[in-house]
Design a protein around this nucleic acid. Structure first.
Length: 274
DNA sequence: ATTGCTTCCTGAGCGC
DNA sequence: TGCGCTCAGGAAGCAA
């Protein structure tokens, strides 16, 4: 389940491996996978040379020499794997980036929540209206939280997953950041003290940074560009654990339909909304 | 405006 | 061995 650290890892590896490749075409192998926001204008063939690769939240952005952007969201099980046209295709190949010279990029996605969008560089990024700030930027600080959580009575766990507030945090890192900041996941956003907001900001930055250093977390499907796993699953403290590092039993609850793991002993009792 | 429920989808794991 | 059930969850769409 790729979240910010996994997408960042993939962006860095792709940057090394496919920058400068000429994309001859992007082939959709399952309908609904690729959306073209450029049509009815005719797409150039070849589509363009990859000039740079970026990330925003959980989105990967390929910049092409032809002023086209290819935006990829990996969803739950999406993988981008470098290969050659002659390689055996994976079972759930949904789209294929073909490069001049015979290399290619597989977009494999078992559960099909991932998608690819083509848009013009000159248009605003199509997802931007629904996306909050980058958690690793200096704009994400206790003042930002103070300003945005003041009228939010919902549980802080759910707020961390709200991409329009902070872009890139998913279930694993929400649980881990709350454990590290010793905040109970049911605590009301508006009920957080300034000290807790500060601790949460630091914990989010710390856990995301550490996860990037370890190339992300592989629980089941996430793979890097060369099909290798990440390592951060070895450093998780509560997610899918039965005991926290201090030896307390970890609790499992469901919030907004997702499983939350937390330690009742380490994470302070929540301040609930009235 | 905010929140939460449902939906999309497939494979793994489990009980019988 | 195999069937049916539950679970995993990112984000859009909808209802309250």
């Amino acid at each position: 389940m790729p979240e910010l650290p996994e997408v960042e890892t993939i962006a860095r590896e792709l940057r090394d491996q496919v920058t400068g490749e000429i994309i001859t075409q992007v082939t959709q192998l399952r309908s609904g996978t690729v959306t073209d926001l450029i049509s009815p204008a005719r797409l150039p063939c070849p589509l363009g040379t990859i000039t740079s690769i970026g990330r925003r939240g959980k989105y990967l952005i390929f910049d092409l020499s032809t002023a086209i952007l290819i935006v990829v969201h990996l969803g739950m099980t999406g993988k981008l794997i470098t290969a050659t046209a002659a390689d055996e295709r994976p079972d759930h190949l949904r789209a294929l980036f073909s490069f001049a010279g015979g290399r290619c990029l597989f977009f494999d996605d078992i559960r099909t929540f991932g998608h690819i969008t083509l848009q013009k560089q000159s248009d605003p990024l199509y997802f931007e209206p629904r996306l909050g700030i980058e958690p690793l930027s200096s704009a994400f600080n206790k003042n930002y939280l103070k300003q945005h959580l003041v009228n939010r009575p919902g549980p802080v766990k759910n707020l961390l997953l709200d991409q329009s507030l902070i872009a890139g945090i998913g279930n694993i890192y929400a649980c881990e950041a709350l454990y590290r900041s010793r905040i109970h996941p049911a605590t009301s956003g508006a009920g957080l003290s300034v000290a807790q907001m500060n601790a949460l900001v630091l914990a989010v930055k710390e856990v995301l940074t550490a996860a990037i250093e370890h190339n992300g977390t592989t629980i089941s499907d996430y793979r890097r560009v060369d099909d290798k796993t990440g390592d951060f699953q070895n450093f998780l403290r509560v997610y899918q654990k039965t005991a926290c590092p201090r030896g307390h039993a970890v609790q499992k609850i469901v919030q907004a339909g997702r499983t939350t793991y937390y330690c009742p002993a380490c994470q302070k009792a929540p301040i609930l909304p009235r």
